[in-house]
Design a binder for these strands. Structure first.
Length: 825
RNA sequence: GCCGAUGUGGCGGAAUGGUAGACGCGAUCGACUCAAAAUCGAUUAUUCGCAAGGAUGUGGAGGUUCGAGUCCUCUCUUCGGCACCA
């Protein structure tokens, strides 16, 4: 029954009221693991910043919410959670400036953010909210870190294993040869292993652990007394300077923690293939991992009774080698100094290269420099020819072997170098790569461009790394029951001035020997999706039953900018957890969709600087959350970057008002046949479109349906089905209208409509008539009309006869239901 | 430089090789109104024409096809990713 008198559409009242009801009644509550099929729909959780939301931010959330809502109505047990990635820079900066603890400030930001989200009407199960800066959460981030610390990668079994098993192997049989992942020479017997000091054993094991300590070049600013990220540095007149203050920035090797993501390079590449991800994201990850297959070939250097091993993907050009080039950092250079006759100049060259920064050195279009190592030559193993040995800064020390063979005839860079230094360029026939590699005793190898990831920040507002350093250098991981290792209070949030984090200034902390680095931003976000499965669990990062049931994320929605960061790190951690038996799936995110950004109406990025920021709170207040949601979905393809349009949202608002007004003329009886037929077409279209994230065309088809409804008689049942189709987009207004038709339960837990196939078929169809491929008219024919009948009818049209006058019909093509093309000359 | 996208009315965009421009915004005209707003109706790719109707048209140049926005070749624009990775 419809209400006697419909009130005016008041979005403020309706939206507030239903948001409260949904919250009170836990309409979007996720069921415990059971028989119901699961559907995990996840948003990339936000990083709460003081700036708050603009209308571009919720776009992805709206898309995933529409999807989640339809799947809920489809009968799935939907897990659709939200949380906050709450460690990081904004709160850190705030703490430095105000000298106040970032905790309360972060809590405030989280609350603010949540408030902004809540008025948009998302169907999140807020009972599962997580914030990564809370000790209950980061206890498990630390726990996973310890598991990584206590693991190594077994390249034979191609999986991670506990480090204890490696130690047992060392004690029993020792080890032999070069480890494929770490490139470390480890040759010792069991006896020798036992004779190692504790520290030596620790150092050796450090080459195997998946979380390990090492040294890395960082951007160091002496004046600021801190390490800077790449984007905090700008180019100055004499090399790089800090963005803030313009102080000189140099490269400095510092102790760091790392994650051995390179151990997983091949699996990260291979397992990408079957994922339902946007192809460009897969492509970006693929390029980032950068697999290349080639050969390692050894060139004898008789003068020093040694050899240089080069890596090449073009072993087939081996006969064209005219010189060998080493990276300036090539490890054995100083051992050869007595033989190198121009050692002084060589040394100077190496020094000058060291002063250049990374970007200066690696920009492809800068001139190539180098210097010959006089006094030594290398022997080409293919033909025994003697070739000169050079060092040059276009060769990178940390890729391949740090040495390359120069083939100017076939390599552009070598060609430039050879031309610059007047080295010979010779043309030799190509040979078979594999055969030549074998014949010169080389090996076929696979290399990756991807590097191990630095896992440390010299900042306060991050997870403490749960390790103790003893005075003698021995590192002891904390026991599980000692977790979480909570962040201590500090006097100053500023970096310490000698490159260490503010934790280094806490006496009690240092006395305990705790690690003073904190974890990077990507630690917490690499596993948060698992925590949502069982967010309150105090005994595990998530309970087994929950993990078994929820398994992985079915639909993940977020920005494409995480392609080589978060999305890669999460996959790495997940694979590790899989290897160790903690999760049942190899991949965390089965399907991924990227939302496009919304720019300012002026076509520029939405930013305070341009004064083009639109605040969603104001839009919601003025037009309503339903209008905002509908408009953001209608604006254009989900993945496209689109400009905001304040005029445009009026169309969505009008649409909702028209739906509201239509409800007044809905009858108890049946709908017109035409209206009913279109409704069922719309059901099919909307269902398919939401399924494939084509929200803009789904909304468009709802508009088309409404246009027809306004011209027809519409029955209550059909109108309610229409409301159901609209419900994921405009949850408030549809709930309000739905409840006016004697429904006690929420529209959002109702069953998604199914189209009747019989109603999709039309009796008649209008098709175009083409003459020689040009449209000259149209006819309406019965759906069952044969090709002959259509042809006859088309030829009977006077206008067509006019066109065909004086021409002979050569051929007639009939495409049923579409077009008829008459070919004549 | 390499890899991947992208280009359609005034604007956002739609279109399994089959009637290009759905849907929405904007605009123009009309109805309602004392008037305005809101609402409703009509028109709205360009161009020639009084009209009927014609010609042109999906960045550009070719091609395949009865038929191309869609497929192929070359090329340009814009945007992302990587960037001396041998």
């Amino acid at each position: 029954m419809k209400p006697k008198q419909a009130p005016l559409y008041n979005h403020l009242k309706i939206e507030k009221q239903w948001q409260k009801t949904w919250q009170d009644e836990k309409t979007y509550h996720t069921d415990k693991p059971g028989k119901k099929p699961k559907m995990y729909v996840l948003d990339m959780f936000p990083y709460p910043s003081g700036a708050g939301l603009h209308v571009g931010h919720p776009r992805g959330y709206i898309g995933s919410d529409v999807y989640a809502r339809m799947q809920r109505m489809n009968g799935f047990n939907v897990l659709h959670p939200m949380g906050f990635d709450s460690f990081g820079l904004p709160a850190e900066q705030y703490a430095i400036q105000t000298k106040k603890h970032p905790g309360p400030f972060t809590d405030k930001l989280v609350a603010q953010y949540k408030q902004q989200l809540s008025i948009i009407g998302f169907s999140y199960d807020w009972d599962r909210e997580v914030s990564t800066h809370r000790p209950e959460y980061y206890k498990w981030t630390q726990w996973i870190f310890l598991k990584l610390y206590d693991a190594w990668y077994d390249t034979k079994k191609n999986k991670a294993r506990p480090i204890a098993e490696l130690i047992a192997q060392f004690e029993k049989t020792g080890t032999k040869g070069v480890h494929a992942v770490t490139d470390t020479e480890t040759t010792f017997t069991a006896k020798e292993w036992k004779a190692f000091s504790k520290l030596e054993q620790q150092d050796m094991l450090m080459h195997f652990r998946l979380a390990f300590e090492g040294f890395a070049e960082v951007n160091w600013c002496e004046e600021l007394g801190t390490v800077l990220a790449n984007d905090e540095i700008v180019d100055g007149p004499d090399g790089p300077v800090s963005e803030r203050g313009g102080y000189k920035v140099i490269k400095k090797a510092m102790r760091q923690w790392f994650m051995r993501i390179t151990a997983y390079a091949d699996r990260l590449l291979k397992d990408l293939e079957p994922l339902d991800w946007p192809s460009n994201i897969k492509e970006i990850q693929k390029n980032w991992i950068g697999k290349s297959e080639g050969s390692e070939i050894s060139f004898e250097v008789p003068a020093v009774q040694s050899s240089v091993s080069v890596f090449t993907t073009r072993a087939d050009t081996l006969f064209g080698v005219t010189y060998i080039v080493l990276a300036p950092e090539y490890p054995f250079l100083s051992e050869w100094q007595n033989v190198i006759t121009n050692w002084k100049e060589v040394q100077e060259y190496i020094k000058s290269v060291a002063q250049k920064d990374e970007t200066e050195r690696t920009s492809a279009d800068k001139p190539k420099t180098g210097i010959q190592l006089k006094g030594i030559t290398a022997i080409n193993p293919a033909n025994g020819e003697e070739v000169p040995v050079w060092i040059a800064d276009y060769v990178l020390a940390n890729y391949g072997t740090g040495a390359v063979m120069g083939v100017p005839q076939h390599d552009e860079r070598d060609h430039i170098f050879a031309t610059t230094y007047k080295l010979p360029i010779i043309d030799q026939p190509l040979v078979d790569k594999i055969a030549i590699t074998k014949s010169v005793n080389g090996t076929i190898v696979t290399k990756y461009k991807m590097r191990d990831a630095i896992f440390a920040r010299q900042r306060y507002w991050g997870e403490p790394i749960p390790l103790r350093h003893a005075v003698n250098g021995i590192i002891t991981p904390l026991k599980e029951k000692e977790l979480p290792l909570q962040l201590p209070n500090v006097k100053s949030y500023e970096p310490s001035g000698n490159g260490e984090s503010p934790l280094a200034g806490v006496k009690a902390w240092v006395k305990e020997g705790y690690e003073t680095n904190t974890m990077p931003g990507w630690a917490a976000s690499s596993w948060y999706f698992l925590r949502y499965m069982d967010p309150a669990n105090a005994k595990a990062f998530a309970g087994e039953k929950n993990i078994e049931y929820w398994k992985d994320v079915d639909m993940y929605v977020g920005g494409a900018e995480h392609a080589t960061g978060h999305l890669l790190y999460s996959r790495f951690w997940h694979k590790f957890l899989y290897d160790m038996g903690y999760v049942p799936t190899k991949e965390p995110f089965k399907a991924l969709r990227n939302q496009g950004m919304i720019g300012g109406a002026d076509g520029r990025k939405m930013s305070k600087r341009w004064g083009n920021v639109i605040n969603p709170d104001e839009v919601v207040k003025l037009y309503g959350a339903d209008s905002l949601r509908l408009f953001e979905m209608f604006l254009g393809p989900f993945e496209s970057h689109l400009p905001w349009s304040t005029e445009g949202i009026i169309g969505s608002r009008r649409f909702i008002e028209r739906v509201w007004r239509l409800s007044e003329k809905v009858t108890d009886g049946k709908s017109d046949k035409s209206a009913e037929k279109l409704l069922h077409k719309t059901i099919k279209k909307v269902t398919e479109d939401i399924q494939k994230f084509a929200f803009n065309t789904a909304v468009s088809s709802l508009m088309i349906c409404l246009n027809e409804f306004e011209k027809s008689q519409v029955g209550e049942k059909d109108f309610c089905m229409f409301l159901q189709l609209l419900a994921p987009f405009a949850p408030h207004v549809t709930e309000e209208l739905w409840k006016q038709y004697d429904h006690t339960a929420s529209i959002h837990t109702s069953t998604w409509p199914k189209h009747k196939p019989a109603l999709l078929v039309d009796d008649e169809v209008t098709i175009g008539i083409q003459v020689n491929g040009k449209v000259r008219g149209e006819i309406t024919v019965g759906i069952g009309a044969s090709k002959e009948e259509i042809e006859e009818a088309a030829l009977a049209v006077p206008r067509i006869q006019e066109f065909l006058k004086g021409m002979a019909i050569k051929k007639v093509i009939v495409v049923p239901g579409r077009v008829i093309n008459i070919v004549a000359a």
